Simulated scan of single mutants.
Amino acid sequence: MKWRLLSPGFSGAAVQTQIMSGGYDLNLFTSPPDCNFLCSVCHGVLKTPVRLPCSHIFCKKCILRWLSRQKTCPCCRKEVRRRKIVHVNKLQKIIGRLEVKCRNAEAGCQVTCPLAHRKGHQDSCPFELMVCPNEGCTLRVPRGALAEHRQNCQHGAHQRCSLGCGATLGPAERANHNCYQELREAWCQHQQRSRSLVLCLLRHMRKMHRTTGLIRRQLAEFLEEDDPLLAGAPQEGAEATPEGSVGAEVWGPQGQATL
């Protein structure tokens, strides 16, 4: 099946004055793609192809840019309504099977894969440039050399723990740093100290309680011996103190009144 992309009377001069990059670069492919896979607006391989009512096919991004300025087809100049645009999924799957080079081919990557799998390879390509994770370093190095760069990076002398404990670590310390384990050990030590303090406090409380009880008993014995009335023992002949009086008479052990 072929799709109608170009018309004999189409002149792309007006389009070429506006550089559009909606499609895939031709240099990305291992072999030149079929002309039926090219967008007549950006002249790249169709990316997310869509078909107009007139059967011409373009990259979705390209045709939407075009229609934002003109309401006609770039090829045949027929009027176009956006709601009449449809996706060409079958063509997109065919283009997805075209063999492409890694975008890091110039850097030395020799891997080729279908266009649909290109992103998966890119996420693991050893030639993909990565930003150095060391704080303050702005260099971009290939993924395969990132580990070696981090060891020798001048900005990697001291860094904050990536796990969030707040510690500032050097290269040698980072290799053995495990803040979760260290925090757990510190927590256990804190728990042991807290338990020891609680036990010590309980011992002091018991001692204080025994001392208080002893003092209370001694005081009660002293009051009973020294003043039976204050100790609560009734005594014959004792007169009640009138309510509201300034002083109160208390009978001592020899039967003398005191104020």
Rank of each mutant, 00 (worst) to 15 (best):
R216K: 11
M1R: 04
S21V: 12
R4E: 05
C76V: 02
A240K: 14
G244A: 04
R140S: 15
P126Q: 02
Q254F: 08
S162H: 13
G170I: 06
I63Y: 00
A147P: 01
T30I: 04
R97K: 11
C76N: 02
E239F: 13
L197V: 01
T17Y: 11
P32E: 02
P253Y: 11
L115M: 06
S55T: 06
T48Q: 14
R150K: 13
H87S: 15
C39D: 00
D25P: 05
H87Q: 15
A172T: 08
G255T: 00
V86G: 08
E128P: 07
L64D: 07
Q256K: 07
R193W: 01
L223T: 11
S21P: 06
A233F: 14
L229D: 10
L139I: 13
L139A: 15
N27L: 14
G252H: 05
V141Y: 03
D227C: 13
N134H: 10
G247I: 14
L129E: 13
V250W: 01
R150S: 09
A240I: 14
C102V: 00
Q92I: 06
T241H: 07
Y180M: 14
F37M: 00
R206Y: 05
R97D: 09
H190S: 10
S68M: 07
V198W: 04
K71S: 11
S68P: 01
E249L: 14
E79I: 11
L183M: 14
G255P: 03
F58Q: 00
E224A: 13
R118S: 02
H56Q: 01
V111S: 05
S68Q: 10
S245T: 09
E225V: 12
T48M: 11
H155V: 10
C188R: 12
F37I: 02
T211S: 12
I94S: 02
R103D: 07
H121T: 05
L146V: 01
H117K: 14
P228C: 04
N36H: 07
L219S: 09
A147F: 02
I95K: 00
L199Q: 03
R69N: 12
T168L: 15
T138G: 13
Q191V: 03
E79T: 11
R216F: 06
N36A: 07
V88S: 05
C35S: 08
Q181E: 12
R51P: 07
P32M: 03
N134W: 07
G144M: 11
I19Y: 10
K47T: 06
A13V: 15
H158N: 15
C109Q: 06
C54S: 02
R51T: 14
A231S: 07
H43T: 11
L52P: 01
I95H: 02
R118F: 04
K2P: 05
K84L: 14
K78M: 06
C102T: 02
C75I: 08
A14M: 10
S40K: 01
A238L: 15
W187T: 13
N89A: 15
L197E: 02
G164E: 08
